[in-house]
Amino acid sequence: MSCPICGKDTVQPYRPFCSRRCADVDLARWLNGSYAVPSQDPEDMDRAEEEVRTAQSKPH
């Protein structure tokens, strides 16, 4: 099995990753929203549009 982040062989303590670094990269992707399951629910779409409008109206 190869690491899904870098493609190297996995190491048992970090499976399915090869190292702590690749495990942390994967976790960071989950936490910042890089991985997401698309939704077709109209309520989710409405909520997402509202969040974008709210974020755009806030000063940075």
Rank of each mutant, 00 (worst) to 15 (best):
V25R: 07
M1G: 13
A48H: 02
S34N: 09
D41Q: 03
V11Q: 15
M45T: 08
Q12T: 13
Y35C: 04
S57W: 03
K58I: 00
R20D: 01
E50T: 08
Y14P: 04
I5H: 10
N32T: 09
D44N: 01
I5S: 15
D9G: 15
F17H: 07
S57A: 09
P4M: 12
P42A: 00
D24G: 05
Q56I: 03
P13N: 12
K8V: 11
M45C: 02
I5C: 11
V25F: 10
P13I: 11
M1A: 12
C22H: 06
R47E: 04
P16R: 10
H60S: 03
R15Q: 14
A28G: 13
N32Y: 09
A28E: 10
A55D: 00
K58Q: 03
V52M: 00
K8G: 12
E49A: 03
C18A: 09
A28R: 12
D44T: 02
R15M: 11
Q40A: 12
C6N: 13
R15H: 15
T54L: 06
A48Y: 02
E51L: 06
T10Y: 14
G33Q: 06
Y14E: 12
K8E: 15
W30C: 07
Q56N: 07
D9N: 14
S19M: 05
E43A: 02
G33D: 06
A28Y: 11
D41R: 01
L27G: 14
F17Y: 15
L31R: 12
V52E: 01
D41G: 02
A28H: 12
K8F: 13
P42S: 03
Y35D: 03
P4R: 12
Q40T: 10
L31C: 05
R21F: 13
H60N: 03
